[in-house]
């Protein structure tokens, strides 16, 4: 069994010569920027989901991460375990995987609708604080069940890009990072288009004044459900791309669900009720976090372990000191 020693260890080239040849500073900056934008795209998707649910229902959904994990798990299940619907219709691998992901995203949206109908709708008219606490309960419930399905190991989502790298002008970019940004951009455009549609306008009206919206014949319950459905779908997309190379080896119990909480600074930074703010906040926080990790890492001895995780909160605090409702949040006026 003693295998022949694969000792090709002599003077390995630790960094790809293409990377070294392209120069240090600029390459490093651009690589950081790409990585930050890709992370920011995931944060932006998560933040969008948070904001849409908040705008429509005035509830901060603490179960958002658990829902993201549902989407990621379902993608792994449909794409890797079942290859559904790919095995039925054939076609190139990227198409088969994309269809599996779409099925998973739609099913996660249904999960969002069901959660809203079971736990949130009965709470209409109750104090918002109570509803927010209920979402904490939903988080534990959904996360526990999802973690059971995920199991103890890592479940790769089976995306067709794998560990593929594109070398663009000497800058190495993971293919998944490009796909993440493109998909996130498409999702954001879709959300913007939705808000211009008739139903989207109804959602905006509901967000502005529920009673007035009802008086105009808008089904507020239906809008609530829709916001949870859309929010869940966005969370699922974020969950999928948070579980791919190079950021993660796959979907993991607890870890995938908790990832969503890292998007909180993005939500607050942008403004809890601002769709545009969620997008801007997501990208800002993503880039700031990666930049801090990249450029401050030599000072980890002084700054402490995990300092890059704190930097987004520092940025958020700084912004809140100047603009208490976030960059784009609606200023709330109270007369006393």
């Amino acid at each position: 069994m003693l295998a022949s020693l694969p000792l090709l260890l002599a003077q390995t080239a630790p960094v790809d010569p293409a990377v070294q040849a392209s120069g240090g500073g600029l390459t490093r900056f651009l690589a950081m920027l790409v990585s930050g934008i890709a992370l920011g795209a995931i944060y932006a998707l998560l933040a969008l989901g948070f904001v849409i649910i908040f705008k429509a229902t005035q509830v901060v959904n603490f179960a958002h991460g658990a829902i993201a994990a549902v989407g990621a798990y379902l993608t792994a299940y449909f794409a890797v375990t079942l290859n559904f619907p790919g095995s039925l219709i054939g076609g190139p691998r990227w198409l088969q995987w994309s269809l599996s992901a779409v099925v998973a995203i739609l099913m996660t949206a249904v999960v969002g609708l069901v959660l809203e109908r079971l736990f949130i709708r009965p709470m209409i008219g109750e104090p918002l604080f109570s509803v927010a606490i209920i979402t904490l309960g939903i988080d534990i419930l959904v996360r526990t069940i999802t973690d059971d399905f995920i199991g103890t190991g890592v479940r790769p989502v089976g995306d067709p890009w794998g560990a593929g790298i594109w070398n663009i002008g000497g800058i190495r970019i993971a293919q998944t990072q490009i796909v993440t940004v493109l998909v996130a951009a498409a999702a954001m455009v879709a959300v913007a288009a939705f808000f211009r549609s008739r139903t989207g306008v109804a959602m905006r009206a509901t967000a502005f004044d529920q009673e007035a919206a009802m008086a105009q014949g808008i089904g507020v319950g239906r809008i609530f459900a829709l916001s949870w459905g859309i929010g869940a779908a966005l969370a699922a997309i974020a969950g999928i791309f948070a579980s791919v190379f190079p950021r993660s080896p796959g979907v993991m119990a607890t870890t995938t669900a908790f990832f969503a909480f890292r998007a909180f600074p993005a939500v607050i930074l942008g403004g809890l009720d601002s769709v545009g703010g969620a997008v801007v906040g997501g990208f800002v926080i993503g880039i700031v976090e990666v930049a801090a990790g990249t450029y401050l890492s030599p000072y980890a001895d002084v700054l402490g372990v995990g300092f890059q995780g704190i930097v987004p909160y520092l940025v958020m605090l700084l912004v809140l000191l100047i603009r208490p409702y976030g960059l784009f949040g609606t200023k709330e006026i109270r007369r006393v």
């Binding site: 390995t12 630790p14 990377v19 690589a31 790298i165 190495r172 993971a174 950021r247 080896p249």
Partner: peptide, 10 residues
């Protein structure tokens, strides 16, 4: 994953 993506080959 992160290091390999950036071209590290050690």
């Amino acid at each position: 994953g992160g290091a390999v993506a950036q071209g590290f080959q050690g």
